[in-house]
Nucleic acid binder design. Structure first.
Lengths: 309, 309
DNA sequence: TGGCTTGATAGATAAATCCTATCGACTTGA
DNA sequence: TCAAGTCGATAGGATTTATCTATCAAGCCA
């Protein structure tokens, strides 16, 4: 029964009988039979098919919702019982937006200290994909924007605030400034993330709010690629302060605060809003709550250091 | 898998392999094998047995909690899909405390008007039993006291307020009064419910609060039996106003308000706090919210009638 | 039309479920 | 202390279920 519900979940994310079967570790006829059996038990057609997968019926959608919950709870139960015996084990699956990837280590490191038998999978995904993965139980937690985009049935823990910096060579135009405006940033040739990333959409919105238009010279879905270009001294980019610090600044490479407006986004941990949580997830929420104050302090530290010095 | 979890649920309420098996419609060896298989999957012993059932292990308790949820959700899913196709059908299982039995009709009647294909099972149970039945998914809803006794993981809808009356013959001592005190009631030979009923415990507490002691002449777990005794004119009882009205008063049989203190208990509908509810249960909550104002109005009606007259 | 993709179907085989019958440990009462 | 009864585990066998490989039919695209 629960296996069959798992079939439905796989079918929902693969939208293809063959691939869904593969994902479940069974052959396509087995999955077909499972779905059909579920349909017989329910007395309703769940999947619209006309020689290929054509989505779920109304009833199928409802069954899908229930299946997510039931399958999720079943996994959580197994997890919990296992944790009672052997402490936390297994694999914690996290997805984070690219601009937050650098601070995932701030969570995984203390987590691993407490629970050395847990292994990690960390994926780089867009904020929208993260929510989809959470829905489909393909990840245990996400790290993404807590504002600006609707979040579904998830609980969230704020982690830190993302503030924007112009990352550029000291020799380049604006390179000698203590702060620049978004209007000024708009005039510079930039390397930015692709528009499917929320970070890019936020930057575009900020630039547009000054009456300018965002026309980046180079787009990529990889922060590493953007940074390596900026490193050459010939390119500039806009990235969160925390990320710029992590990647490392040099004498010639500067991260200049961008003002007018001084935009702030809250980044946080999101987990499925299931009660109770899987122990492996609950432990991550614990860690997140513990390190969150330090994360935001790190950001203000340079200022206070300057005051003291 | 879900069948196995159902075995665990049955075992929890029957505390006996054989009876649990019977309740599940399988033989005892089948149930034993199912439990054992679950234990192998979990890698933990769930049930303590030493030639007989000796309760659950710590892990078993946790599995039990999860099983309640998972099995409940599975049923809710079936219910919901079925309701989408054929409207509400099936059997709505309700348990009520004896003093509230008379007003169950105020719920079932409008319910049946809206959903004619739903059939009912109504049980008379103590308030404690009602909560147990709810926990074990053996009933869909309960009608019981909302105060005084801890309620578990349930949602509740207040229905009406229970006020106490001395039910006695007009010729008997106190029979000619417009109101009596609990101290006076304590002196009269009473027919009361047995002490396992919360109604009785509340009455005992009220009597004790006046410094007297509760020593009923006759105890029973049946309101009908109590009432039939009072009907003879030789006995008296204490019962909720609403129940006395339903059972019917005559010229010689009076229901006299009891004061000092004028005790009020809230009676309400309790349903499992699961989100979303089973459609059959959700419909009952709807009805309850709709009729609740009328129920309490019925009670105050005599007063306002007197004022007008 | 011919090749390709996709899901359904057929038939064989492996696996599981579930039953009856029985055993052995414990409890109880004479 | 022993006989009878209770309770859950176990054994063995019949039946059902699950799953695989192979193949088919319908739709799609060129």
């Amino acid at each position: 029964m629960i296996d069959k519900l798992d079939f439905i979940l796989a079918l929902a994310r693969e939208r293809h009988f063959g691939r869904a079967a593969e994902a479940c570790g069974v052959t396509q006829p087995t999955l077909s039979a499972g779905v059909k059996q579920l349909e017989e038990q329910m007395g309703v057609l769940l999947v619209n098919r006309g020689s290929r997968f054509q989505g779920f019926t109304t009833e199928g959608q409802r069954v899908l919702d229930w299946a997510r919950r039931i399958v999720g709870d079943t996994r959580a139960m197994r997890e919990e019982i296992n944790a009672l015996r052997h402490g936390l084990t297994g694999r914690l699956r996290i997805a984070a937006i690219p601009t937050a990837l650098a601070m995932v280590a701030a969570l995984t490191t203390p987590y691993r200290e407490r629970h050395p038998n847990v292994t990690f999978t960390v994926l780089s995904r867009t904020s929208i994909e993260i929510l989809e993965l959470l829905e489909n139980l393909e990840i245990d937690a996400g790290i993404t924007y807590l504002e600006n985009e609707p979040v579904g049935r998830v609980n969230s823990v704020p982690l830190y605030h993302e503030r924007y910096r112009l990352l550029t060579s000291a020799e380049a135009p604006l390179g000698n400034r203590d702060s620049v405006t978004w209007a000024e940033v708009a005039e510079v040739p930039l390397c930015l993330l692709t528009p499917d990333m929320q970070n890019r959409r936020i930057i575009d919105r900020l630039i547009k709010s000054t009456g300018h238009e965002s026309r980046p010279t180079l787009e990529s879905d990889s922060m590493i690629l953007l940074f390596s270009h900026v490193r050459t001294g010939r390119w500039a980019s806009v990235m969160p302060a925390k990320l710029a610090e992590t990647l490392g600044l040099t004498v010639t490479l500067r991260a200049i605060p961008i003002v007018e407006p001084e935009a702030v986004q809250t980044i946080g941990l999101v987990v499925p809003s299931r009660e109770p949580m899987m122990p492996i997830t609950a432990a991550l929420v614990d860690v997140a709550k513990r390190v969150a104050p330090q994360l935001d302090e790190m950001e203000t530290a340079p200022k206070s250091a300057r005051k003291r010095g």
